[in-house]
Amino acid sequence: MICKHRRYLMYISQNYSYAILRPIQKYILSQGGEVCWFLEGDEVDSSYLLTQETKLKTVKEVVDWKPDAVFVPGNTVPRFIPGVKVAVFHGFDSGKRSSKRGHFNIRGCFDLYCTQGPATTKPFQYLATKYGYFDVVETGWPTLDPLFEDNASNPYVDDNDKRPVILMCSTFSQSLSCAPTLFNKVKELSEKGRWRWLVQFHPKMPLEIVEKYKSLQNDNLQFIETDNVLPLLQMADVMLCDTSSVLIMFLLLGKPVVSFRNQSPSSYLIDVVDPSKIEGSIEKALTKPLEIESAINDYSKQVHPYQDGKSSARVVVATNELIENGLTNKRRKPLNLIRNFKLRKALKYWGC
């Protein structure tokens, strides 16, 4: 299934989506296809676009360009944009929301779901049978292709600092975020200087929390704002997190996570509910207990068994097969009149 002479649109609304879709872009371009980007809304920064990347500024430009396929790491995409609509997800199912409201919420927008592993494939296959207007192909998550590659130019490497690296990440959800509660503990631990701290939050984290953690920066702690978390995951020895799906990406590297009040505490996590237990839990994680390593390995096989760096290729192959052969499922996709009206209004587009 070739890409040559085909056009592929990257449809994004958040800065983290750049890193999600660039591995797909890399593969498409290597096969002779064309790629353009469309940025929806004011939460995505066009300055993150690379010099060689092409941005379509309006919906009319997108419609006139006539993409063959549209890759979406978000939850919705307008029906009036041409091309088959492909969901590639913006993260893993971390259990922050119920299935009906979260990862498995079917909004009637997509023709193809490219799932990450058995844990998501099976539920989506059931939903495909139930709804009958989209297909499901297990491809692995293209975002992670670079994660399993050696990154000799990792910007966070410090050859002069041999201390263990602790990466703190947190979701923005007020009820789930560990950032507010753990501020004083992280301040205390960073001042001890035993470990090197890297701190990175979800882009929707409230500004006041971000500013508080920025104030902690010293020789032991660095606050990082980036559209690409993968080098941070590669760099760290242990993650401190809450219920953010980024912890799943870290586990896929076989590394331990100390979670704080996780919504679904499991054997592959070192979960704590008391901030006073954080230091001891990190110490435990750094010893890499065999029982936790085994649990992480079993979990990874279900969530994302692919470590060959070829998930992007599988996504594009599945997309091209859909373009050429049509849907396996034949029911008509819902019109989504209200949602598409809202999207037209937001995007200021009233054409065909």
Results as ranks from 00 to 15, higher is better:
Arg6Ser: 13
Tyr8Asp: 02
Met10Pro: 01
Asn15Phe: 08
Tyr16Trp: 06
Tyr16Asp: 00
Ser17His: 15
Ala19Thr: 08
Ile20Trp: 01
Arg22Glu: 00
Trp37Glu: 05
Gly41Asn: 00
Asp42Asn: 11
Val44Glu: 00
Ser46Ile: 10
Tyr48Glu: 00
Thr51Leu: 14
Lys57Glu: 11
Thr58Asp: 08
Val59Lys: 03
Val62Ile: 08
Lys66Phe: 09
Pro67His: 02
Ala69Asp: 01
Ala69Arg: 00
Pro73Ile: 04
Pro73Trp: 02
Gly74Glu: 04
Thr76Asn: 08
Pro78Lys: 05
Arg79Ser: 10
Val86Met: 06
Ala87Gln: 14
Val88Asn: 01
Ser98Leu: 12
Lys100Leu: 14
His103Lys: 12
Gly108Glu: 06
Cys109His: 09
Cys109Ala: 10
Leu112Asp: 05
Leu112Gln: 07
Tyr113Lys: 03
Tyr113Ala: 03
Pro118Gln: 06
Pro123Ser: 03
Gln125Asn: 09
Ala128Met: 14
Phe134Ala: 07
Thr143Pro: 00
Phe148Cys: 03
Asn151Gln: 15
Pro164Ile: 10
Val165Lys: 07
Met168Cys: 05
Gln174Ala: 12
Gln174His: 11
Ser177Arg: 05
Cys178Gly: 15
Pro180Cys: 11
Leu182Gly: 12
Ser190Asp: 02
Glu191Gln: 15
Lys192Asp: 15
Trp197Gln: 04
Lys204Phe: 11
Leu207Glu: 13
Glu208Val: 04
Glu211Lys: 04
Asp219Ser: 04
Phe223Trp: 10
Glu225Leu: 09
Thr226Pro: 10
Asn228Val: 13
Asn228Cys: 09
Pro231Gly: 10
Leu233Glu: 13
Gln234Asp: 01
Met235Trp: 06
Ala236Glu: 05
Met239Phe: 13
Met239Asn: 13
Ser244Met: 09
Leu247Glu: 15
Ile248Ser: 00
Met249Asn: 01
Ser259Lys: 14
Asn262Ile: 14
Leu269Gly: 01
Ile270Trp: 08
Asp271Arg: 06
Pro275Ala: 07
Ser276Thr: 08
Lys277Gly: 01
Ile278Pro: 00
Gly280Tyr: 06
Ile282Pro: 02
Glu283Lys: 13
Lys284His: 03
Ala285Cys: 06
Leu286Tyr: 09
Pro289Gly: 08
Tyr299Val: 12
Gln302Asn: 15
Gln307Arg: 14
Gln307Trp: 08
Asp308Lys: 14
Ala313Glu: 12
Val315Gly: 02
Asn320Ser: 05
Glu324Val: 08
Gly326Trp: 10
Lys330Tyr: 04
Arg331Leu: 06
Arg339Thr: 07
Phe341Trp: 12
Lys342Gly: 12
